[in-house]
């Protein structure tokens, strides 16, 4: 299937963040949690955007829609799917795509993103499960992303996964796999720096080298989150993308490097478990904002040099 020209990619090695139409603001944002609805409306925090999990709002009515509708009036919104199962061996669930289209029509989010993962096989597993990086999977994922973009009439962003196992069937690196998807579908990259770090530690790789190998000119959003630590059978570190702790210093350091190269980027602080008070999330967002400010003063953000990837 040929991809429609959904997005004009810069053909030179210079990319200007912010010049793509309908982009999230190049600021820090946070995930909108129901326990913070009232605090957000009362305090109207100075934040770049909010992100919500699409599936939580696939309900008929009630408080979730009430509060999201009010908050959306004042803030840009990023819609982040966690259940589309783009990496699934089976076909995409058209009814789920319909529900996404309804949400997009209702809330007009600036951006829609999903994961390079699968989560359904008859049952829904509520987790982001890994795929082998081979040609058959590449073709299938591209076909699914083409369908998503065609149905939703907009380019989507694809998030790099955190993984705990690898497949003997893989014939390419994760970075090459992602690059191929982006080239073939025109979708953008949601660079989850925590996922990059978690996966690289889990698979004995260098995280900065991995990030450098990604098509960074296609990054439209960054995610930051916390992980928890375990060990594998050989005692090697095994990090778990748990979203229940503050961002780790190693991930902040990687983020600072990325931002120094990319300039300010829409950056989401994710916290899905053990959610702290709103003020704690805003403090983490402020730290990302400060790093962006520092990076912007180091180097003009409008001209960034790129190595060709």
């Amino acid at each position: 299937m040929t991809s429609p020209a959904l997005r004009d990619r810069p053909s030179t090695s210079t990319y200007r963040p912010g010049c793509v139409a309908a982009a999230l603001p190049a600021r820090a944002g946070i995930g909108l949690k129901p326990q913070h609805f009232l605090a957000v409306l009362d305090t109207r925090p100075n934040i770049g955007f909010f992100e919500v999990h699409a599936e939580n709002y696939m309900v008929d009515g009630g408080p979730f829609h009430h509060y999201l509708g009010r908050i959306r009036e004042d803030y840009p919104l990023s819609l982040h799917g966690v259940g589309l199962s783009i990496g699934s061996e089976g076909p995409l669930d058209e009814a789920h795509l319909d529900q996404l289209a309804i949400l997009i029509a209702r809330y007009d989010p600036v951006s829609f993103s999903e994961h390079l993962a699968w989560s359904t096989h008859g049952a829904f597993f509520n987790d982001l499960l890994p795929v082998p990086y081979d040609c058959a999977t590449l073709a299938r994922v591209c076909e699914h992303i083409d369908r998503v973009q065609e149905r939703l009439k907009r380019p989507m962003l694809l998030e790099n996964p955190s993984t705990y196992v690898e497949f003997t069937a893989s014939t390419m690196s994760e970075a090459r796999f992602l690059r191929n998807i982006l080239q073939q579908t025109g979708c953008g990259l949601l660079l989850d720096v925590n996922n990059a770090y978690v996966s690289c530690v889990n698979h004995g790789r260098d995280a900065l080298a991995f990030i450098n190998d990604l098509p960074l000119d296609a990054v439209d959003e960054i995610h930051l989150a916390g992980f928890s630590s375990d060990q594998d059978a050989a005692g090697a570190p095994l990090l778990i993308d748990s979203h229940d702790t503050p961002v780790d210093s190693a991930v902040w350091a990687l983020y600072a490097e990325v931002i120094e190269r990319l300039g300010p980027m829409p950056t989401l602080l994710e916290r899905d478990n053990d959610v702290p008070p709103l003020s704690a999330l805003l403090a983490e967002a402020q730290r990302a904002q400060d790093l962006m400010h520092k990076a912007a003063t180091l180097k003009p953000a409008d001209v960034v040099e790129w190595s060709c990837v």
């Binding site: 597993f125 509520n126 987790d127 499960l129 082998p132 705990y164 196992v165 690898e166 497949f167 003997t168 069937a169 889990n202 698979h203 004995g204 790789r205 375990d230 060990q231 594998d232 059978a233 050989a234 090697a236 095994l238 778990i240």
Partner: peptide, 24 residues
């Protein structure tokens, strides 16, 4: 077909997914 980079038994790694699914 499931492996770990250090050739260790992948079962504890699979257990992360098992745990994520059941716990969530």
């Amino acid at each position: 077909g499931i492996v770990a980079w250090n050739a260790s038994d992948p079962t504890p790694r699979l257990a992360v997914y098992r745990n994520n699914v059941v716990r969530s």
